[in-house]
Design a protein around this nucleic acid. Structure first.
Lengths: 227, 227
DNA sequence: TGACTATGACTGACTAGTCAGTCATAAATG
DNA sequence: CATTTATGACTGACTAGTCAGTCATAGTCA
């Protein structure tokens, strides 16, 4: 029983790091193909979970979409629930890494935040990742493990990072409202709303997220005079 | 087949309007009890759906919680799906009505919005209604009927109303950023984030929604000097 | 008013179908 | 050939929806 879980974890580890000993050696064919299959399953599972939610998603459908037999899924994941949890980790982590890479802090705080917003726009809003965020909001209460992970890895870091930027902005005189540092959520809120809007209401009323975020930054920093 | 649906609708109508002819006449015991049962089912269903999501909710559990046999549910609702849809309507409509009642427009735009935010805080944020909003975000994509209804009755009205207020604020010189009227979402966003935050992260990091909304209004209107 | 009948709200055991997870077998690999 | 990996038919638990039967209440009549 526990053996299988261990094996799944090992397979996952192999995906990113083919055995500590051989270091940079190329992965064996087997490991490569196993990793490819795992990725296919993760991709298929993401599509299905996003489209139907956790409970209504059938493993048969995931298997079919991934071009794999159902049993194969159980070679990589303990069960449906932990597949969902690992899926979230697998997809979220690279995004966080990407978005955490801030540009040189030589520019103005506004430019820093604007760059971040641009990346967020490109990497999340209106993409499958955005749908995944909506899915986390949807399933979070039923998956404390997911909600905890998301809070720890994404939300708390995002809030902390944004707070640091706001404080820098205040110190430099770019931001005039000191209280803003107490609620970084206010700065992030429109971006989150854009994510949800695209998932739910885009077909009723399309939203120009980029333009909206610019207006929001104008509100925080004051309107741009010259570039 | 269609008869049953009609009957359910009739029972529902009877809840609020006991037969057009007799006007103010008291409802018969039967109709009263039927209405009470329907309400009990709606309340039970809301709890269960919020806790488990649509797909994972068992009608047996709803019945048990409502103190009713499973068959009774089908006297009031066509099936699980339309029960969910009617539930959303039943719960949302009164809230919209309540929140639509604006105070006399003699006060400043800031006061108008602040009053609205206060009501929203009391009626939605941190309540079962707030959880329901999260549920709509969660299930919306799988229930176009629900998403459409919510967009039509809540979102589009809210956006339009807020836009009117913003334009008034601009005209009166209370709001300086004219572009804000193009994205009323920006004004509403923190309130929505507060709703979601309470559902998902309150136990990780409690959020003083009221204070946050005040800070946000300070950002839009400039900080308060005197009252 | 009291007795008798008609109504339809309510019940819950039951059916038919679904789907997560298993495992005996087969294929691939080295 | 031995071992690892993959398959998909199968099982058993679970649940949406049904329906024949019950019974409290409304209606009728003497």
């Amino acid at each position: 029983m526990t053996k299988k879980l261990t094996k799944a974890a090992a397979a996952k580890a192999a995906t990113r790091n083919p055995e500590a000993g051989e270091d940079a050696a190329p992965m064996s064919n087997r490991a490569t193909r196993a990793a490819e299959r795992r990725d296919a399953i993760v991709a298929a599972a993401m599509e299905e979970f996003i489209a139907r939610g956790f409970a209504a998603t059938r493993l048969d459908d995931i298997a079919k979409r991934a071009g794999v037999a159902k049993g194969t899924i159980y070679l990589h994941f303990k069960d449906k629930e932990s597949m969902f949890e690992e899926l979230v980790r697998t997809v979220i982590v690279p995004v966080v890494v990407k978005l955490s890479a801030l540009p040189p802090p030589t520019s103005s705080v506004r430019d820093l935040i604007e760059t971040f917003a641009g990346n967020f726009l490109k990497e999340v809003i209106g993409t499958r990742r955005g749908d995944l965020v909506r899915l986390i909001v949807a399933e979070g209460p039923r998956f404390p493990a997911v909600a905890d992970f998301y809070y720890r890895e994404v939300v708390s870091r995002g809030i902390a990072g944004m707070r640091a930027l706001i404080e820098l902005g205040i110190a430099r005189g770019e931001i005039h409202q000191a209280n803003l540092a107490r609620y970084p959520q206010i700065v992030i809120a429109p971006a989150m709303i854009a994510v949800i809007w695209q998932s739910l209401f885009a077909r009723h009323a399309p939203l120009d997220a980029q333009d909206m975020l610019r207006v929001h930054l104008d509100l925080i920093f004051g309107e741009r005079r010259t570039t």
